[in-house]
Design a protein around this nucleic acid. Structure first.
Lengths: 294, 294
DNA sequence: CTAATGTCTATTGTTAGAATAGAGTCAACC
DNA sequence: GGTTGACTCTATTCTAACAATAGACATTAG
């Protein structure tokens, strides 16, 4: 139970030494872990039998294992831990701990972003599952939203999907450059300015990603105002113009007034890739004022 | 710049295809990443030259890369992503996202624990750096603290360091069993009950770890009350009794009254391992009532 | 045509062990 | 002293998601 009586390497006195299995059990770790630590010179057994190569540990070496496990739980690598042991510098420990503390903060921040991204995605899929019949036209009140907008300088309605992909690549570059989390990239859209609508032209070079509403104001960040929007939902990149014209007709018929920029939002990207093309579910939104309020 | 004109494998028409380098650059990833995705069948190039084995991609395949990068940023493994692509099941995506959301919550919780642990450790090292002269006796007001206490049933003052280590192993087992974070284990201590002090005996089998003050009440959790403590600081496990006796003498001399259990706190474990022994910095604390207030 | 750059395959390395195989060792029991 | 079962040894392979490298071949620009 308590190990074997063996003359220690110091030859000073008998000591109760522990076999690798006993040592592992006492410290709630595995035999291979101890062997691994031996191999990388992180924790050597006190005594190794020359004939059998059996490893024997002193219970007091548990202190080192405690230290290792503790430092590991702080997120340090075994290499870093070894360095610390070798350095034996007490002053420096605080620096390392402070750095570690910052790392943890960063990690937490990252995870919060992740979390928001996942939540947003879940919401979007819910919207998709409960979507009204494809093509139906509805009036919706939509709250204010923030977007990071990028002007690709090329008309996205001009050259089909390939061109749109190129502009998306540019937006992606911006997203990465601005250090925005990639999760934003699943909820993109484009803006057709009111002047263009009024002029009856499909000309726009601006695409955007939705960002969190508490995102700090900076260059490129724009707010899409709250209000009543005439909306319709459909699949496929190719049907935007067709559906937009239907909305315009509807608005004219109902004598609504278009009061701002038209938004084409990609609600979800469906992970089914027919013929390698983007397969998206889109919501068109045109801000209006009802005639009764005129 | 925009790729090479090559007849696509469908033989339908000319397409602008991208070399692996161009594709990588457009998507802000690396060539080896694309090759790796090809190898694991996550994203195959649209066309591979039979003679040269050069890979050529369609810009529209960026949609798949977006999807991969997005799902990766949600913390999914490439294997999971591949499964999703293969499965093509929209219903299931929400389940996965919800699971992912829970995982993230767990991660955040873990990191918060880590963070508290690191902060506690930094505080302790600060205490160590600013410690009063070794051996000096001071009166300190100490706020209430919570501990997780374990009774090892064996007198820790009886058999020296080896025995203490065994009891520590038991405490560690409890810490792991109760699923307390390992970081707590860097700030341990022992209690000598007032009855034993009064009887003049060094007999205690109880050791503990400090836990967060907002730790929920449960079995084993005990509060060390706030109040005035007579304290002294020293290194080495072996000097506890000697220092305790000095404190007792001092208290008698000043005619203080001992009003509770004596606490021996290991403030820091120093990562310097002389002769493989635990190297600790200890603070003794005896709660008292000054004679004036009597 | 040449030089520079790009791409190919194949191999190795990264972290912190887990899993396995085949051989040797230990303690206990008969 | 032999046997049995538990333990330990070394060595190798495996994990995830690429990065780095070497040596050979391809493409592009001038």
């Amino acid at each position: 139970m308590a190990g074997t009586r063996i003359l220690s390497w110091r030859g000073e006195k008998d000591v109760d030494l522990l076999s690798i299995g006993e040592m592992a059990a006492l410290n709630h770790t595995s035999v291979q872990t101890l062997r691994y630590y031996d191999k990388i010179d992180l924790l050597k057994p006190l005594y190794v039998d020359e004939d059998t190569n059996y490893r024997y540990y002193d219970i007091k070496q548990s202190a080192i294992l405690d230290m290792i496990q503790y430092m590991k739980s702080l997120g340090m690598s075994l290499e870093q831990i070894k360095e610390q042991f070798d350095r034996e510098d007490v002053e420096e420990i605080q620096d390392i701990l402070k750095k570690q503390s910052k790392n943890i903060d960063d990690e937490i921040r990252k995870l919060h972003h992740m979390k928001q991204g996942v939540e947003a995605c879940i919401r979007n899929y819910s919207r998709y599952m409960e979507m009204p019949e494809e093509g139906s036209i509805r009036l919706e009140f939509i709250a204010a939203r923030k977007v990071f907008c990028y002007d690709g300088k090329i008309n996205i309605y001009d050259h089909g999907l390939d061109n749109y992909e190129y502009i998306l690549r540019e937006l992606k570059k911006q997203v990465i450059l601005k250090d925005l989390p990639m999760v934003y990239f699943c909820n993109v859209g484009s803006i057709l300015r009111k002047e263009m609508i009024d002029a009856g032209k499909f000309v726009s070079s601006e695409i955007f990603v939705f960002v969190d509403n508490d995102f700090r104001e900076q260059e490129g960040i724009e707010t899409i105002p709250a209000g009543d929007y005439i909306c319709t939902y459909f699949h496929s990149f190719w049907k935007e113009e067709e559906n937009a014209r239907r909305l315009f007709d509807y608005i004219r018929e109902k004598e609504y007034e278009i009061i701002g920029d038209y938004v084409c939002e990609v609600v979800v990207e469906l992970p089914i890739f027919d013929n390698n093309e983007r397969n998206m579910f889109v919501k068109l939104q045109i801000p209006i004022k009802p005639p009764t309020a005129g």
